[in-house]
Structure formats: C-alpha cells, structure tokens
Amino acid sequence: MHADLAGLTADPGVPKPDPLLVVDGVTRAFGGLVAVHVEHLEIQRGAITALIGPNGAGKSTLFNVLSGFDRADAGRWTFDGAPVTGRSAHRLARRGLVRTFQLTKTLGRLSVLENMKLAATGQRGERLVAGLLPPLWLGQERAIEQRADELLERFRLAHMRDEYAGTLSGGQRKLLEMARALMVRPTMVLLDEPMAGVNPALTQSLLSHITDLRDEGMTVCFVEHDMDVVMGISDWVVCMAEGEVVAEGPPRAVAQNPAVIDAYLGRHHDEPGTEYDDG
C-alpha cells in the first residue's frame, strides 16, 4: 500500500496528504433520478485508487463529469490545485487529466501507429497552415513515431503497428487505448473499467501496465468490478452506492466494511427471513 496513505482513517471524504483531484458537492441528476451526489472526495497523487460499487452506483457518471464528458448540476472540483469545474473535455486532457472509455474508442480506420501518433501533444503539424509545409513538422513527427514505437513495443502491439485499429481484438484495443493515453504524458489517468470484456489471460498483463503507470509517477483512478483485481493492485479503494461515497480506505479494510457489503447485497447481510436466507 502507498506509504503516504498509511495511517489515514477510513472515512468517506477523508482528506489526503497530497491530493491531485479534489471533488466538492458534485451532483448529477437525470430527470428526477440523482445519479451522483459526492459530498467530498480527494484522490491522492501518485497512488492507484480503485472506484468500486454495484451497477448504477454512479461511478461512470462521476468519471464522465470529472473528465468533462458530462456536465455537473452542482459542485466544484479542482485538479492539481486549479479549479476546473465545467471545463470541456479537451481542455482537461490538455491539463493532464486523460481518460479511457469502457467501450473502447480506437479509431478504426486509422492504423495503430496513427492512433498513437495522434495522441502526442504540442504537435506543430496539427495547425492548419503548418500542416501544409512538411519541413515544419517532419522532424517532430519522426521523434513522435519513435516514442510511439517504443510504447507499442512495451504493450506488445508492435506487430500490429500498420494495421487498421479496427481489426484489433477487444483486449488489444484496451491495450491500445492505454498506450495511447500514455502518449499524452498525462498527470492522471482515469481508466473506465479497463478489464471489461478482456479475456482473463490478458488481465495480468493489463494489471502490470497499470502498476507501471503509478511507478512512473502517474496518478491512476480506475473503475472496476472484479474484487480480486482491486485487491491486487490498489493503494486505496473508494466505494460508491446510489451516487454517494459510502466508504473508502485501504483495500482490505473496505472489503470488510459493512457499508460496502450492504451496497453490493442490497441490505444488511444478517437479516433473517429473506429469499437469500436458505438456512
């Protein structure tokens, strides 16, 4: 477990020693249904935080709001000390907050390499006029390509470099999205269910990539359902239910937290006389 987080009381909304993302009173409702209502949440810099909770708990909605893909009805949040409430998705990404998607968004008719090169920041050739004059950007492009190839090698996608990304398998797409996010050199990565739809043989590989991210200094927050995965690599776990944060703390503590078990099972686990109680 992350050294900085040792000794923190495991209460929902507990302040962190060095928070990168601070969320205050963020609410999002659809029609009459409140999907998210987070009073206070802080994500520790440089740690891997897991966001767990039953279906409909609001985890993806919270991700969407924080990353600019949905608007909040109320509340504020700061990223790296700066207020970013309501900023658009691309501006947040430029500030270093990058997210991946539960249903991967690989750009099918671009090659794997092009997917990677697209993600690099500060490209001179991406401006309209400069784009017309190759000498202005060819040098930069070569450097970007080199970095892309290194990442592809690391994620074992190098052999698919020139193939259309649309021909990749589900698991390969997950890897590509993660590798592509890295090209941005983000400060924080939000992974929306990185294991969803991935065959178990690939899970270990993905997990080691996630821990690599943290070891390289990035802050990771990921949504996940598989408790083994969560226990295995998380430094800190936040549990949501019905839009609210019901518990947070070190992985083992959260797993044994009655509030968390309630959230998943729907009611207190030792109540008698129900269909689950078959003696």
Partner: peptide, 14 residues
Amino acid sequence: RAIREDEDAVRSLG
C-alpha cells in the same frame, strides 16, 4: 480523420 472516426476519443486526447 480521427474526428470522422470518434469525436470523443479525439477530445479525450486534448
């Protein structure tokens, strides 16, 4: 060309 494929992906890359 990336925008043609998926706008959200392009936004998420800044």
